[in-house]
């Protein structure tokens, strides 16, 4: 422990702070997912009875953990793990979710969608474009899963509409929303150990 400068380079190994922050985010987002699941039912009923696929517009909240985890931790697997674990947490809270094991499957696909975008940029770009695309692809993957799991008998056009709404919601709520959430957290000084904190700091 002679001399250490906070590493700025790219290092795929997870430090303790990476693991602890990732899992802490997963628990916090798990609670958010759980609460959103309880709020979702009445809202989605409104959406369903106007135009059913539009209920996918409410889904973006469930895609946000992966985007936020990926933007903060910036390491391979972070987006996937944050999203999947957050989904898992939301099921084991007592009173669980109405969707049972399906939540694990959703967490898997949503996490994978976001992760692929970060991979596509070689874990080097973490701007608003990356965030938006990550949210959108998470939405596409989730919608594709829901085609099989929940709505196999929708007409093809309705399925496409469902996917479009999910991607839009993912892009806006999880992507753009997640991007600004990370910026706000960095401004509050709690991300100093991570890329977003280092980039946003002003010296006093």
């Amino acid at each position: 422990m002679s001399s250490a400068v906070t590493s700025r380079g790219f290092d795929i190994r997870y430090r303790t702070i990476d693991l602890v922050s990732l899992t802490t985010l997963a628990v916090a987002f798990g609670v958010v997912f759980w609460a959103w699941g309880k709020l979702y039912e009445p809202l989605s009923n409104l959406a369903v009875f106007s135009y059913p696929p539009s209920s996918a517009l409410l889904g973006g909240v469930w895609l946000s953990a992966g985007v936020v985890g990926g933007l903060i931790i910036r390491k391979p697997g972070a987006a996937f793990a944050t999203e999947f674990l957050a989904a898992a947490v939301s099921t084991v809270i007592v009173g669980g979710t109405q969707w049972g094991w399906s939540v694990f499957a959703s967490g898997f696909w949503q996490g994978l969608g976001a992760e692929l975008i970060f991979l596509l940029f070689f874990y080097r770009r973490f701007g608003i474009v990356t965030a938006t695309l990550a949210g959108a692809l998470a939405g596409v993957f989730e919608s594709r899963y829901e085609w099989s799991a929940y709505i196999p008998d929708y007409s093809f056009g309705s399925k496409l509409a469902h996917m479009g709404f999910f991607a839009l919601s993912g892009a806006v709520i999880a992507g753009i929303g997640g991007y600004y959430l990370v910026r706000a957290l960095a401004a509050a000084g709690v991300l100093d150990a991570f890329g977003p904190g280092r980039e946003q700091v002003s010296e006093v």
Binding site: S2, S3, A4, T6
Partner: peptide, 13 residues
Amino acid sequence: LGTTLAGELTGTA
């Protein structure tokens, strides 16, 4: 220092 807490560390501890 330099791991969980970000900054610049020189010398030894």
